[in-house]
């Protein structure tokens, strides 16, 4: 299987935070979610991968052959946008189109116009336009998405794209991911970060979990779901089940948590319910375990 990015020991030191030796792969042709709590290092990693900030060490291999993120040919292959203040607030749809056209060789103005209409943002050719500062958070994010999706790229990297979107817009975002991948099946990939995977679960193929600047787990979602199990049962079995589980939370009547699949038979023998977790449940379990271990 091809990887669109191979991350080898990337580090970044700040005064109060260290992104420590990240090793991960982003598979080609799939949607990868970078999952972690706020401050886990997701944005820092994405910024490094897209050349928005420098790194202290390590390297990344893009598309199996390119290493220099300052290479304009590589930058043209990656469509990146952040969720907060990506463009200056006084910019309008027209200013964005003008700047995108200059900033990237593969920006398609007609496609931008089409996406703006589809997202009900207006027409970039209109004389009277609202600037970004006057738009709602959701419409601002839609504008960023329209801009980045108007480029003919091979990898889409979005930092927290869903955080300011309402449920319907999140659903539309999932559709956009599918469309983007389907346009060139197997050749395009998506990487997005999130601290709340619940609404994006259906579209996620591969997951990289981060905590305290490190990657704590990664893999295809279906494989991860087979490696871990969701366990729940009555409080009476809690004491016996707890040592077999990775994470545990309970009250006077019941308990729930995540366990390794290898413990499934022992847990079933304790008369507990063992089932495949959702990605959201798995995320909570893995991230909670990482918090406890820290």
């Amino acid at each position: 299987m091809k990887n669109v990015i191979e991350i080898k020991g990337i580090t970044k030191h700040y005064k109060d935070f260290t992104l420590g030796g990240v090793d991960a792969v982003i598979p080609c042709g799939f949607t990868t979610a970078l999952i972690g709590v706020n401050g886990a290092g997701k944005t820092t990693l994405i910024d490094i991968l897209c050349g928005v900030t420098g790194k202290s060490g390590g390297e990344a291999l893009y598309f199996g052959e390119m290493r220099d993120i300052d290479d304009p040919a590589l930058r043209d292959r990656i469509g990146y946008c952040s969720s907060m203040n990506f463009f200056p607030p006084n910019w309008t749809l027209k200013t964005i189109a003008d700047s995108m056209e200059l900033g990237f060789d593969n920006f398609d103005r007609a496609r931008f116009t089409e996406l703006c209409r589809r997202f009900k943002l207006g027409d970039p050719a209109d004389k009277k336009q609202k600037n970004l500062a006057k738009l709602s958070d959701g419409n601002r994010m839609r504008t960023y998405l329209a801009a980045v999706l108007s480029r003919d790229t091979e990898l889409l990297v979005l930092d927290e794209p869903a955080s300011s979107l309402d449920p319907l817009a999140r659903d539309m975002l999932c559709d956009l991911f599918r469309e983007y991948l389907a346009e060139r099946d197997g050749e395009r990939s998506v990487l997005f970060s999130t601290h709340n995977i619940s609404d994006m679960e259906n579209v996620t193929d591969y997951a990289v979990f981060m905590s305290h600047g490190k990657v704590i787990a990664q893999g295809f979602v279906e494989d991860l779901k087979q490696s871990y199990q969701l366990v729940h049962g009555d409080a009476a079995q809690a004491a016996k089940a707890k040592p077999l589980m990775m994470t545990f939370s309970g009250n006077a009547t019941s308990f729930e948590g995540i366990a390794l699949a290898a413990q499934a038979d022992k847990l079933r023998a304790l008369d507990t319910a063992v089932e495949a977790p959702t990605l959201q449940q798995l995320s909570v379990g893995l991230l909670r375990k990482a918090e406890q271990d820290e």
């Binding site: 897209c50 900030t53 304009p72 952040s82 203040n85 900033g103």
Partner: peptide, 19 residues
């Protein structure tokens, strides 16, 4: 700076610092 609006967009453009 990276933190101000537009800072990340400008850094991500094709020519980066050369631009």
């Amino acid at each position: 700076p990276r933190s101000v609006p537009g800072g990340k967009f400008f850094r991500s453009t094709k020519e980066g610092f050369a631009g």
